Simulated scan of single mutants.
Amino acid sequence: MSLSETGFEKELDTAFGALRQAAKLSQLVISSHDKGTVTKEDLSPVTIADFAIQALLISTFKDAFPEDTFVGEEDAADLRANEALLSRVWDLLNTIAHDDDTQRGACKLPQSKDHMCDLIDQAGTSRPGGPGSGRVWVFDPIDGTKTYLRGELYAINVGLIVDGKQTLGVVAGPNLSLNQKGPLRNSDIDPDGKGCIVYAIKGHGAYARPLHGESSSVTQLPKQTATQDLSFVTCTGLVDSALDGVHEVVAQRLGLSFPGSDLVPWVLRWASMALGIGNTTVWVYKRRDRYAKVWDHAGAMLLFEETGGKITDVHGRDIDLSAGRKMSANFGFVAAPAEAHDRVLKAVHDVLKDQGRHEFLQ
Rank of each mutant, 00 (worst) to 15 (best):
G105Y: 00
F70S: 13
Q54E: 15
L19Y: 01
D75H: 11
K35E: 10
V46E: 11
D68V: 09
G17S: 13
L93P: 13
C117V: 14
T39R: 10
A106R: 07
D100R: 10
I53F: 03
A55W: 01
D101K: 03
D75A: 10
Q21Y: 05
R104C: 03
S87E: 15
E74S: 00
T60I: 08
S31R: 11
L56W: 06
T69H: 14
A84V: 15
I58F: 09
T39P: 04
A55C: 07
L92R: 03
A49Q: 02
L56E: 07
A52N: 08
P66W: 07
M116H: 01
T69W: 04
T60K: 12
L28K: 05
W90G: 08
F65Y: 09
S87R: 13
I30T: 12
A23S: 15
S87D: 14
D34P: 02
L56M: 08
F65I: 10
D63H: 13
D68Y: 11
D114A: 12
K108N: 09
L93M: 00
Q103F: 02
Q27D: 10
S32G: 10
D34C: 04
L28N: 00
N94F: 01
I96L: 02
L25Y: 06
Q27C: 12
T60M: 08
F61Y: 03
D101R: 01
I48V: 14
C107V: 06
L85R: 01
A97Y: 02
S26V: 07
A23L: 03
T39F: 01
D91Q: 04
L85T: 02
F65D: 11
V89P: 06
K62I: 05
V89E: 02
T95A: 13
P110Q: 04
T95M: 10
A81N: 13
T39I: 07
E41G: 00
D91M: 01
H98K: 09
T60L: 12
A84Q: 11
F51Y: 14
F65Q: 13
K62Q: 12
P110H: 06
N82Y: 01
L86H: 05
M116G: 01
A49M: 08
D78Y: 15
T95N: 14
V46Y: 01
A77F: 09
K40L: 10
A97V: 07
D75L: 12
C117T: 15
D99A: 13
N94L: 11
T69L: 12
I53S: 02
D42T: 07
L79A: 08
D114I: 11
L79P: 10
I58W: 09
F61A: 05
T37A: 12
D63N: 15
K24Y: 03
S44A: 06
L57T: 03
E41A: 02
D100H: 09
W90T: 00
L86P: 03
I48T: 09
Q103R: 12
A23Y: 03
L85I: 00
I48W: 05
Q54P: 15
